[in-house]
Design a protein around this nucleic acid. Sequence first.
DNA 1: GTCTATACATCGATAGAC
DNA 2: GTCTATCGATGTATAGAC
Lengths: 208, 208
Amino acid sequence: MVQTETSRAGRQKLVKKAEVILEGAMQEFLAHGYAATSMDRIAAAAGVSKATVYSHFQDKEGLFTTLIQRLAQERYRTIFDPQHPQSLQGEPRIVLRRLATEILDNSIEDQQFHDFMRIIVGESGRFPQLARIYVQNLAKPVIEILGQYLASHSELKLPDPEAAVRVFIGTLVYCVIFQELLHGKKILPMERERLIETLIHLIVPENL
Amino acid sequence: MVQTETSRAGRQKLVKKAEVILEGAMQEFLAHGYAATSMDRIAAAAGVSKATVYSHFQDKEGLFTTLIQRLAQERYRTIFDPQHPQSLQGEPRIVLRRLATEILDNSIEDQQFHDFMRIIVGESGRFPQLARIYVQNLAKPVIEILGQYLASHSELKLPDPEAAVRVFIGTLVYCVIFQELLHGKKILPMERERLIETLIHLIVPENL
DNA sequence: GTCTATACATCGATAGAC
DNA sequence: GTCTATCGATGTATAGAC
């Protein structure tokens, strides 16, 4: 019993060490960006020594890419990928409003997600593989699923459903980038409800 | 004559010194971002000593903000602000296609503009005043002018012209961000013509 | 005014004690 | 496995020669 507990504690400690380091790295990288973050500050934020950081991760770049991949794959997947596939069941007017509301609600208030997007865009020139992960894991699923949905609803009479998806998603994502990341809401505010209603008005014919 | 030429040469040299430094700073900052750029490399790129850089600019932050302000105000103003006000004269179908084509053509191929946008977004948390300049000088003019245009064309029957502008601009800007900055065109390509035609189809009624 | 040389701090990464 | 101590390189910024 004691052996088992000790063994479990030891294994948990191993697991938690890397986890604690990743948490400290997330805090520092998201706050200061890649280049301005030092391994010393990461170690301090995680409460371990710098040598311990290097025993779990090859170097700064490896720690950074591992962190961003985890954030993209595990945490923020739920923001754009509708966690409830059944949410795409129903008539377009309701489905589109629910999807747009879900995306905006999950993105606008999440300060950590803003920092994540700032890094993805800001480092997309020097870390193209991270931008690729964003495209592959976050953007592609919702674009394809919504594309299938719009294409299957011929009553919308959309000549190019795939392009219409880009209008829908582009409007919502640029809303977050412009209003929140770039602080545009202080200068040119735009209520999210007006945006959502306008998108629905443009995409869904009046008689539906 | 000789005096005048000497005087002119001296004055030009003064002006050109700061200009040369800004050009080297632009090269380095746009390529490597703020934190990863060193004053040594800026001085080397400009062909001057580091002390000369500090004699023209207070510090690294001052040089950076001065540079980004200049880029936003002088160079990239022409990208989003339609340089020809008369380009907004005419029927919506033609005006919107011309405006969208102009914005995309000027943004998609311009690698330097991509780096500029990466920095604006990537540093918008630590340099909010630079994001503010982008909003104020690049985004606000076109949003307001296009808003007036859409509002004045009541035959479009848009319930909320201001929100429709966000759809139009958001679609185009996110197209550039997604396809070019984030390298999305390799994974999920989308021809700009399809996007433009879809925007027009959604905003302009068929009988116009 | 512009240079060389340098002060001083901090960087990423590692060696060796335990 | 994790720590302390440290290496060599590089960072920002400045002093002093000319």
